[in-house]
């Protein structure tokens, strides 16, 4: 089998470029998402933005706009639902997000709708447009710059928010910037990986590298590499095995997470077993 075969088709070249661009940014960014314990909010937003995507698909406007609007609506719904203290914010979020997912499916499954629900839910890296690629490149560039500029405040707040405050760093402002980046990342990445699978690229690589590196910067660089490699592996696997591309990429990312956890577990057990000097 020709190793370069996927590269010979323009479709697959674009898919590879998409997963590398998304992986490089989302992999690095995911380290902050997990550090700030935003995995569940991120998943909620990713699933809750489905109605935005469906409405955009039905109306024939760019899906990116639908994604942005969908994230905004989902964030609002989660915030409003979470205000009832008797229910608890995690339960309220679950209800709001399931409701939005249901609404999105309902809209997408009307008889006269174009049959694209599958693609919106599970993503289709092979179907990315030039516009999607441009958006992913813009995200990688602008988001990457934002991560560089925010690196020290993020680290200070992650270590201790109270201490950061006395250094003149507002934890609220830093968290807000993080959420804004998260919304942007989801709106862009959902084009390639779909509403249900997009979280894999944010969380998987961060889990894979956690505990293996001595600084946040190194963890982020490693997570970016892991995400890009897993993305490429997923595209290749789908080309060779004829599996769905989005799902293959998501599985490769999760396999990386599992592998990282496994190595961590083995290393931890070995350290515990070896006699201390």
């Amino acid at each position: 089998m020709d190793l370069l075969e996927p590269l010979q088709s323009g479709i697959e070249r674009r898919a590879l470029a998409e997963v590398v661009l998304l992986g490089a940014f989302c992999g690095a960014f995911g380290c902050w998402v997990t550090t700030f314990r935003l995995s569940y909010p991120a998943e909620s937003l990713a699933h809750g933005l489905l109605p935005g995507l469906v409405v955009a698909a039905l109306a024939g406007i760019p899906l990116l706009l639908g994604g942005v609007a969908g994230v905004a609506v989902a964030a609002l719904a989660v915030a409003v639902a979470g205000r009832d203290a008797r229910v608890g914010s995690d339960t309220a979020t679950a209800v709001a997000v399931t409701g939005l997912l249901g609404l999105g499916s309902l809209l997408a499954l009307t008889p006269d709708a174009p049959a694209r629900l599958e693609e919106l839910l599970f993503g289709d890296p092979l179907g990315v447009t030039d516009g999607d690629l441009a958006a992913a490149a813009a995200l990688a560039l602008a988001g990457g710059l934002a991560l560089v500029a925010l690196h020290r405040p993020l680290a200070a707040v992650a270590l201790d928010a109270g201490g950061a405050r006395s250094l003149g760093i507002s934890a609220t402002a830093v968290r807000f910037a993080l959420l804004a980046l998260l919304a942007a990342a989801l709106a862009v990445a959902v084009q390639g990986l779909g509403s249900l699978l997009v979280l894999a690229v944010l969380i998987g690589p961060a889990v894979a590298v956690r505990g293996h590196f001595s600084t946040p910067g190194r963890s982020m660089a490693a997570a970016a590499v892991v995400a890009a490699l897993a993305g490429v592996a997923g595209i290749y696997a789908s080309a060779w095995l004829g599996t769905a591309a989005g799902a293959s990429v998501a599985l490769a990312l999760c396999a990386a997470a599992a592998l990282g956890a496994l190595v961590r577990g083995v290393a931890g057990r070995r350290a515990a077993a070896s006699p201390s000097p």
Binding site: T35, A158, L159, D160, A161, G162, G163, G211, S214, P216
Partner: peptide, 14 residues
């Protein structure tokens, strides 16, 4: 310097 430190001990910094 706060009385009770509430630092995240799993955060990888020196």
């Amino acid at each position: 310097l706060a009385q009770t430190e509430r630092t995240r001990l799993d955060f990888p910094v020196s």
